[in-house]
Design a protein around this nucleic acid. Structure first.
Lengths: 347, 347
DNA sequence: GTGAAAGCGCTAACAG
DNA sequence: CTGTTAGCGCTTTCAC
């Protein structure tokens, strides 16, 4: 049934182990292990070991290490999907983690509860050192038991309240307020927003920022100036339409994310609304397409690299000593990139 | 120095193991293991085991399994960076792999040889089932030893010739030829290209497609109509400039990737070149920004989902039986998305 | 079917 | 410093 095990067979010939190295170097495996882990070893032995390793082509079996030490040097990354923002975070996270010898295992849950469970289960059973995730609402119920079992998790982008984890967010509220301030500075008084899904923390914060800026400057916002875009492109498309078909349409719009902005732009283009003459538009999230667009889109830029940096240092600290410090919540600031889509109010 | 180990301490209380389950269920660990692996077990035992698992909150330790079986159910994914294309592949790959209980571990090598070595080393030592990677030229030298040691790898996007691995590409040549055909159909005779880095297989193929289409239609391509864009945005920017400042500038350009197209578009915008009146432009790679651009950019769409699908079935087959089948090279077709950036030649 | 037992490759005591 | 040894949690013989 099975092929004969010819010597020199194409199948894996057993990889050399620490035992082989020890034998060849004429020392005990303990010594090899110590050397491998950077502890000091008599110099002559060190050379012997190095030599044996090179000759054998020995490569440490990290699964064995993981099993023994209960740390895998892998961190899990769980997101709904890998659009520009999350992909950017993943890329930077990968870079940062690599400095501590860790790699990132990714999982997309597509907003489906059974998939978040499956992913969490995978992570936990593979003993990832930690998991970083977008705090979608769908994860709340499932997350808690893992955390109680000792899983280290860090949330970003979105919050799930009431669970004891570290958090790294952008200062959604402040950045939104500043973006809206910019609109008001330009003389706009009829300013509207296309908002994200209300069950998301980020959406609530961005809306709060919008309101805060308007209130502070005495700009009143009629209820019909707040439309739901539900984070998506079509939401943006119909959102702007609802706004522009009002008897008294806004002269400026704050769109709470990239996708909705794309939708809004599409509608504007189709309907001959020219920016910034007929309408000023500012978007949360900056993406390459906005720079290229004519006119360029004024946008709130999330500092992806800093987010990933922060995430990774929070995790490093937490992993170095899981118990010592209280839960942290860090907010990082955004930049506002001024481009041509916003201009003085006309009239 | 250390905290007292209070019972109920916040630190990990030892997770239940298969032994605990066996004890609680009153069977031997072998029986539990068999049940866990889907082999048949006496029904009464099955129930006992299930029960014990539930009560204990037992979770299989995949690192132990990995060590024992020498398969981790993890596949490595190595790319230079996570731009739109690679991120898309990763996302789909994640989805596909999940169906077979695998997850994807990613690593960005930033085109630095020492990082590709580090990544490969990480993958190998963690005993990934396979690695899928963009066949960048930088990996060639390092890859071979791993393959000889039995590492399963699949290449996509770009080739590294002369190594025994599976390959999944887009039909770069054919797709390019079709895109250029479209230009010629529109009456263009002065057609130029901004090409990618010549050490890359994809760049060579796309150029070959360009040439092939021109030759077939009797369109002669003067040497100065082939400019090097080196895959990047600035390459595209200066590439189009070189072309348009020619005494006899082209009336149509085929840009060999997304980044160079962005650069070209930027220059065109800055210099009052309006598409498609003054110039027709077709790009390899389709990205969201192209749909939004005014006019929309005619582009070759790489079928990301199909690529990932194919990659994952090739790997499934290979992993099911590493020896049985010869190396495979699969080419998948692209779609050409016609938009407003290409039009009949003017004059 | 099942239980007992032998490891997988490694780390971390432990005694020297 | 070093060698020896006891496991980590699991799969997989091997008898029964």
């Amino acid at each position: 049934m099975y092929q004969d095990q010819q010597p020199g067979d194409d199948r894996h010939e057993r990889q050399p182990t620490i035992v082989d190295v020890a034998n060849r170097a004429g020392v005990a495996i303990g010594t090899v292990s110590r050397h491998l882990n950077g502890q000091s070893v008599r110099m002559s032995n060190r050379d012997q070991i190095e030599r044996a390793i090179a000759e054998l082509g020995y490569r440490r079996n990290s699964t064995a290490v993981a099993m023994k030490t209960d740390t895998s040097h892998i961190v899990g990354f769980m997101v709904p999907s890998l659009g520009e923002f999350h992909a950017g975070i993943l890329e930077q996270l990968t870079r940062k983690m690599r400095l501590n010898g860790r790699a990132v295992l990714s999982f997309c849950h597509d907003m489906k509860p059974h998939l978040v469970r499956e992913g969490l289960e995978f992570f936990a059973s593979h003993r990832v050192d930690a998991v970083v995730m977008d705090g979608e609402d769908v994860v709340r119920a499932d997350l808690l038991p893992y955390i109680e079992k000792g899983l280290v998790v860090a949330l970003y982008d979105n919050d799930v309240e009431g669970i004891p984890v570290d958090r790294v967010f952008v200062d959604n509220r402040r950045a939104s307020a500043r973006a809206v301030d910019h609109l008001i500075d330009l003389g706009h008084r009829r300013v509207a927003t296309i908002r994200g899904n209300e069950r998301d923390y980020a959406a609530r914060e961005r809306l709060a920022g919008f309101r805060q800026a308007c209130d502070a400057r005495g700009v009143v916002v009629p209820p019909e100036y707040v439309v739901h875009g539900n984070w998506g492109e079509i939401g943006g498309y119909f959102g702007i339409r609802a706004l522009m078909e009002l008897a008294e349409p806004p002269t400026a719009i704050f769109s709470a994310n990239y996708n909705m902005t794309i939708g809004a732009l599409t509608w504007a283009q189709e309907n001959g609304v020219v920016l910034p003459r007929d309408l000023s538009l500012v978007s949360f999230d900056d993406v390459p397409a906005f720079k290229l667009h004519n006119p360029g889109i004024t946008a709130v830029e999330q500092p992806i690299e800093r987010l990933a940096d922060t995430l990774s240092s929070v995790l490093d600290a937490r992993l170095a000593d899981p118990a010592v410090m209280g839960r942290r919540e860090i907010k990082v600031e955004c930049n506002i990139i001024l481009r041509g889509s916003t201009g003085p109010v006309q009239q």
